[in-house]
Simulated assay, not measured.
Amino acid sequence: MESISVWQKDLFWTYAVVFLQVGSNVILLPFILRTFPQEIVGIWAIFSTIVGSTTELLDFGFNTSFTRSVFYIFSGAKTLKKNRILSCRKYFRNRLQSFEGTN
């Protein structure tokens, strides 16, 4: 199995993206607060919170799985295989049995 190498430029771009995301919000927020009335900013803040939380709720982990698969492909993986995935019922049954065995 080949090891996955992380290059310094990859780390740099990761930090650069995070900095730009946070920095853009820090720069835009005072401009937005000066330009628009409080009522409009409040309504949009509530709306974006509802949409963001609903999106996270309905994501079901697909974004993480998709990102992981794309990363594996770009790092040179030839195939993607399902490996040791337990159903929720089987997982909790195993956990319950191991918990009952300790008493």
Rank of each mutant, 00 (worst) to 15 (best):
E2D: 14
F62G: 08
F66W: 13
L11Q: 07
R68E: 12
G76A: 02
I85E: 13
R34Q: 13
V41P: 08
T64N: 08
E2V: 14
F99K: 11
S65A: 13
I40G: 07
T102P: 00
S24F: 06
S87D: 10
D59Y: 03
I46H: 03
P37D: 15
R34S: 12
R34A: 13
S5W: 11
L86E: 13
S48L: 07
P37T: 08
L11N: 07
T64A: 12
L58P: 04
T49F: 05
L86W: 15
Q21P: 00
L33K: 13
Q38F: 07
W44D: 07
K82D: 08
L33H: 07
E56F: 13
F31R: 10
I4E: 08
F99Q: 08
S48F: 11
L96Q: 09
F60P: 04
N83V: 12
L29M: 15
R89T: 11
W13K: 00
S75T: 05
G61K: 05
F99M: 09
P37K: 08
D59G: 05
T79D: 11
N25P: 03
L28H: 06
R89L: 13
F71S: 10
G52Q: 00
Y15W: 06
K90T: 14
S24A: 05
P37Y: 00
L20N: 01
Q21Y: 08
Q97W: 06
R34W: 10
F66M: 13
A77W: 02
T64E: 15
V26M: 11
F74Q: 02
V18P: 00
T14D: 00
V22E: 01
V41W: 02
V70P: 02
K90Y: 04
W7N: 12
V18M: 05
R89F: 14
S69D: 14
L33C: 04
W13N: 03
S75A: 05
G101M: 07
I32Y: 05
L20M: 12
I4S: 06
P37W: 04
W13R: 03
V18R: 05
S98H: 08
L11E: 10
A45T: 15
S87H: 09
L20H: 00
